[in-house]
C-alpha cells in the first residue's frame, strides 16, 4: 500500500505562539544589544596595539558568527521541510534568508572598514573575508532562487535544496580558501587571530553576541509572522483575527 500525504499544518497556532514570544525576545534583544554595545564602544579599554579601531569587533564578530549559523539554520529548516513536509519550515526559510544575508553583508562591510586602518586597504584577499564573501554569494543565490518562482511554495522548496547543497559545500569552500590563502599570501597580518582577550573586552563581546542573536531571532519571528499572514491571507482564521482591520481596509 502506498500513501501520498498532503498534510495540513496549523499556521495559526505558530502565528499566535510567535506573537506571544516576540515582545519578550525583542525587549531582551534591545537590552542586551544596548548593554553590550555601550560597554564595548564606550567603557571597554582601548587595545594597546590597535587603539580604538579594534572596537568594531563588537559588531563584526557577532554578525560574522551569526551569518554562518543562520545559513546552517536555513539548511536545517530546509531539511525539516523536506523530510516532514512541513510548510512552516519552508516559510522559516523565507524568513531566515534575508536576515542572514544582511548580517553577512554587515560583517563583510565592518571587516573591510577594519581592514583600512589595519592593512591600509579596504579589501584584502584574506581567507576569512573571502569565505564571508562567498557566503554572501550563497545567500544571494538562495534569495534569488526563492524570488524567481511565482509560487512561493515551489520557491521555498527549490531554495531549500540549494541551501542544503550549499551547507555541504561550506566546509569545503572554507578549507579551499584557507589553503589558497596560505599558498598565495604566506603570512599576512591577521587581525583576527589574536592572543586571548582580556576579560574587560571579552564580556562586552559575549553580551553583544547574545544581543545580535536575540535581534536576529526577533527579526525572524516577525518576518515569519508576516510570511504566515501573506500565505494564509484568505483563510478563515485570518479573517477572524483581523476581521475589523480587513473590513476597514476594504472600505477605504
Amino acid at each position: 500500500m502506498w500513501r501520498w500525504l498532503h498534510p495540513y499544518a496549523k499556521p495559526e497556532v505558530v502565528y499566535r505562539l510567535l506573537g506571544r514570544w516576540l515582545p519578550w525576545v525583542a525587549a531582551a534583544a534591545a537590552l542586551t544589544l544596548g548593554a553590550g554595545l555601550v560597554w564595548g564602544l564606550v567603557f571597554a579599554p582601548a587595545d594597546y596595539q590597535q587603539g580604538d579601531s579594534y572596537r568594531i569587533i563588537f559588531v563584526h564578530v557577532p554578525t560574522a558568527m551569526l551569518s554562518m549559523s543562520l545559513y546552517v539554520a536555513l539548511a536545517i529548516s530546509a531539511l525539516v521541510g523536506r523530510v516532514w513536509q512541513l510548510k512552516m519550515a519552508d516559510w522559516a526559510l523565507a524568513a531566515i534568508a534575508p536576515v542572514g544575508a544582511t548580517l553577512t553583508f554587515i560583517s563583510l562591510a565592518t571587516g573591510a572598514i577594519w581592514g583600512k586602518p589595519m592593512w591600509g586597504t579596504w579589501w584584502e584577499w584574506d581567507a576569512r573575508l573571502t569565505s564571508q564573501l562567498i557566503l554572501l554569494f550563497l545567500y544571494i543565490g538562495v534569495l534569488a532562487l526563492y524570488h524567481a518562482f511565482s509560487d512561493n511554495r515551489n520557491g521555498a522548496k527549490a531554495a531549500g535544496i540549494l541551501a542544503m547543497v550549499g551547507v555541504i559545500n561550506i566546509p569545503i569552500i572554507r578549507y579551499s580558501v584557507e589553503w589558497w590563502n596560505t599558498l598565495h599570501q604566506g603570512a599576512t597580518l591577521t587581525v583576527f587571530e589574536r592572543p586571548p582577550m582580556a576579560n574587560s573586552m571579552l564580556f562586552p563581546l559575549l553580551i553583544s553576541i547574545l544581543g545580535f542573536g536575540l535581534l536576529a531571532a526577533a527579526l525572524i519571528f516577525h518576518r515569519m509572522r508576516n510570511e504566515i499572514l501573506r500565505q494564509e491571507l484568505r483563510r478563515p482564521w485570518v479573517k477572524n483575527e483581523f476581521g475589523k482591520e480587513l473590513n476597514e481596509a476594504e472600505r477605504t
Partner: peptide, 8 residues
C-alpha cells in the same frame, strides 16, 4: 503536492 488530504 496539495495543501491537505491523502491519496492511497
Amino acid at each position: 503536492q496539495l495543501q491537505g488530504g491523502t491519496v492511497e
